[in-house]
Design a binder for these strands. Structure first.
Lengths: 209, 209
DNA sequence: GAATGTGAAAATCTTCACAGCT
DNA sequence: AGCTGTGAAGATTTTCACATTC
């Protein structure tokens, strides 16, 4: 018990959780750290260590009760409730994200979409009316959203992020190729597509050895 | 000199590089590790350590020659040539990626797009004719592409990845919510959008302290 | 017997701090 | 004086290995 989960550990927790939900109506009531590890590409020790950060919920000799583990992970990951999400920037990527199933799931709902382009404002997409970005400060607080997705051009990102933060957003998923800064208490996750490609590219140029 | 760059270090290199290119026609001929660090949100020591993995190209008392550094990073990151890329899965996300500027840049060109949906095959998108995924093995070798982007549904991902690998693809950017396996010598980068959200969500539920 | 939970070791990554170059 | 490059220290993350529990 009691050690802080590592940053990458959270990603693993989400993977364990996803795997468990994919098992769904399997008969198997228990799963071992070994099997979980294999499923997500890590080691059994890693799995046990990750869990140990949050308590002790396995049974020696048997493993983890799948239903119970799923529920526990759900709670740890904050999936007990559905999160309202807003999206700013309905360009190519933004529209795709609006339609993305992972973002319109049991746990997340996009409740508002914004853009500055007058030609897009008022149009409907995936059941949402696109709003004027200038109304962001008014509209977001009413939705109760705490998460914002930013898919605007790089040079607009910081400005949008500032507006989101003012409007009460606490977590930002930033797809713009710009490292934005936020005040303490707000979290940003960067999803930087061209840098993912760059990393791949580096790997190809520098073979493992 | 001589220490292996860390996994995350490569991401930093790409950020340094991006920052340098954004400076473009600035007068300043030299930049210090301090300034580079500030620009990308790391420490000066980290910057110097990252560079030291590849040689010694700074000048004590002055800093790094911006043009020279840009060229060196370009080479390290494998950006001397333009990489041909193929994309499989022209759904919402795939179409957006096709249109994404970061993927159609000086260093990357998407040269072929594939889908299994008969209604999409033959259509044109971003100047590319969508090809039948079954022809992947024939067509890819002709393009000389070594990088593949996978944006198909999760249950099709492994199958597509296997086909890409057979067709000679060495690096895969996988947007499907499935951890795929590949033979040695092939690299996969996962871009797992719902897990990014999960991580954000975890951060919101567990405030720093 | 089988698999957990966890100290302790190992590996990896980051920062410090300073000698040495310009 | 100013800033790099790097050995050594520190911090973090992963793995080992085994006592403990079922």
């Amino acid at each position: 018990m009691s050690r802080k989960i590592s940053f990458t550990g959270i990603e693993r927790l989400a993977l364990y959780y996803r795997y468990l939900t994919s098992l769904s109506r399997s008969e198997r009531a228990f799963i071992s750290s070994e099997e979980l590890a294999k499923a997500v590409g890590h080691t059994a020790a890693q799995v046990r260590r990750d869990f140990s950060c949050f308590g002790t919920f396995g049974t020696p000799g048997k493993g983890y009760d799948t239903a119970e583990l799923e529920a526990t992970l759900s709670e740890i990951l904050g999936k007990e409730k559905t999160w309202n999400v807003v999206l700013v920037g309905v360009g190519n990527l933004g529209s795709a994200l609006l339609a993305y199933r992972g973002f319109q799931s049991q746990h997340y709902t996009v409740v508002a979409a914004f853009d500055t382009d007058i030609r897009k404002i008022g149009k409907h997409l995936e059941g949402l009316e696109i709003q004027d970005s200038r109304d962001l400060a008014d509209l977001i607080p009413r939705t109760g959203a705490k998460i914002g997705i930013v898919s605007v051009p790089g040079d607009a990102a910081q400005e949008v992020v500032d507006a989101l933060v003012s409007a009460g957003i606490k977590g930002i998923l930033n797809f713009a190729p710009t490292r934005v800064t936020v005040p303490k208490g707000v979290i940003v996750q960067h999803v930087d597509l061209s840098i993912e490609l760059d990393r791949l590219c580096y790997g190809l140029v520098h073979p493992p050895m």
